[in-house]
Amino acid sequence: MIELRELTKRYGTKVAVDHLSFEVKPGQVTGFLGPNGAGKSTSMRAVLGLDAPTSGEALVGGRRYATFRRPLHEVGALLDAGAVHPARTALDHLRCLGRSNGIGRRRAEQVLELAGIAEVGRRRVGGFSLGMRQRLGIAAALLGDPKVLLFDEPVNGLDLDGVRWIRELLRGFAAEGRTVLISSHLMSEMELVADRLLIVGRGRLIADTTVEELAERYQRGVIVRTPQPERLAAALEAVGARVVAEPDGRLAVRGVDAVKIGDLAAEGGIPVYEVTRRGATLEEAYLQLTAESVEFGGAAA
């Protein structure tokens, strides 16, 4: 479990994280979502003890990261896949990191295999593509077989195969009961993998929700196409629905669901050609949420 308590991080006068509190629970994939500069990376760096909080705290399993003696066995992290010495081979890189936590060569070879880059293990990292470095970074995070995983933008630079691979990997870890936190600035990446969403903007928590809840909250009614819009609108309004005529003549209905609309139309003998639930895409919902936070912050500043 990862826990942030009123975490605040200031760089000079710039507030990167602003009294951020949340918990990341084991057994599910938690998506950490927000526009660039929202404070995602800073929060993760605080969890890993890389950045000292200005105030508040970040805990892993109830402990500060700095108190772990062999932290790779507790927490695996991918922050910046470029953070490798280009002259070292992939295997040597992993051996160097592992050695400081008592992890040997065999495990380094295993995680290379797991990350799908075993065949380039003896090549220098300098020649790696972004995708290969990303896989190496993920391999490094898995060295100590940790119960808690933090990945900052893990699909960056991965091809479609890689994206699918990491999605399955993350879901597998969550299913094993591990705590998985992944950050992204793209909703579309999260939709398919995250059980829970933490949405941040300007260093603050905007929403602690699920993909379903978010879709629900931002759904924009049901679209109905009928040759008799006036009659159907009257029938719907009679049961309390709000009906708006769209420019193309279709009706946008809120307050009743598609089943009720179908029943009412059948009762009134009104032909219906189309009944469609129109949810805002999650991308739109997310943009709307973060835009609100940006406007709010802009007005306050």
């Binding site: 890993l48 992290a77 910046d80 953070a83 490798v84 010495h85 400081s100």
Partner: peptide, 10 residues
């Protein structure tokens, strides 16, 4: 290279 972050994380 940024490796220092991995080093102190370990």
């Amino acid at each position: 290279t940024g490796l220092i972050r991995a080093t102190v994380t370990a």
